[in-house]
């Protein structure tokens, strides 16, 4: 770390600017603690869903509702957006601000695409399938779990958009770099949670 410090004193950005300051490193460590808590939050929502997923109260069942193509498209969008945020961090390590901003914008656009698809899906369920929040224990558990994930995507979209604005104003420094790094970790975590959602909620729902 002394070498990174020396670089910074010379007015040059270190190779991994998110790790150059103690504050940046602590931010990453603290964020991991938060992600551990998020794992517990989603774990309890998954527990509720798994316990109640067959309690459909004469309403629609999972096998009747879910569509594999829509789930596949949503999965592809989120997976690609996770890759684009990897590219953003690699651009940050090359100190290529323009490329960093471009990849973050692509990530945000893909996040919006995912949200649009989810809103369309929920709209179809509520309006055409009479599958509302209070239809059954299954519907409540489904909307709470998948909706919480969608809310996380929405929060990530707003957060990364604000970071892009800050990058335009302040550029890449040892202060802005940890923020970008941590937001990319958050975005990967959202993708990891979605892996469990498409497996346990949608695909398992189709199996029965």
């Amino acid at each position: 770390m002394t070498s990174a410090h020396a670089e910074h004193v010379n007015g040059e950005l270190p190779h991994e600017p998110e790790k150059a300051t103690l504050e940046g490193r602590n931010k990453t460590l603290g964020f991991w603690l938060f992600l551990g808590g998020e794992a517990v939050l989603f774990g309890t929502l998954f527990a509720t869903f798994l316990a109640l997923r067959n309690s459909n109260n004469d309403g629609p069942t999972a096998a009747e509702l879910f569509s594999l193509p829509i789930t596949a498209i949503a999965t592809a969008i989120l997976l690609v957006s996770s890759l684009t945020s990897v590219f953003a961090i690699q651009a940050m390590h090359r100190h290529n601000l323009q490329s960093l901003k471009t990849w973050l914008i692509v990530t945000v656009v893909l996040g919006l695409g995912f949200l649009g698809l989810e809103i369309y899906e929920f709209y179809e369920y509520v309006v055409h399938e009479s599958f509302g929040l209070t239809t059954s224990a299954f519907s409540s558990a489904f909307y709470t779990l998948v909706g919480f994930h969608g809310a996380h995507v929405a929060f990530g979209v707003v957060w990364i958009s604000l970071l892009i604005a800050q990058l335009y104003r302040k550029g890449l420094t040892v202060v802005t770099a940890p923020k970008v790094y941590v937001s990319a970790m958050y975005w990967h975590f959202i993708d990891v949670v979605w892996v469990f959602i498409f497996s346990v909620v949608y695909l398992l729902g189709k199996v029965g």
Binding site: A39, V40, T44, A47
Partner: peptide, 13 residues
């Protein structure tokens, strides 16, 4: 942190 989180989550499940 993550193993702790997954441990509590899997206990709940």
């Amino acid at each position: 942190f993550m193993i702790g989180g997954f441990f509590v989550a899997s206990t709940a499940i």
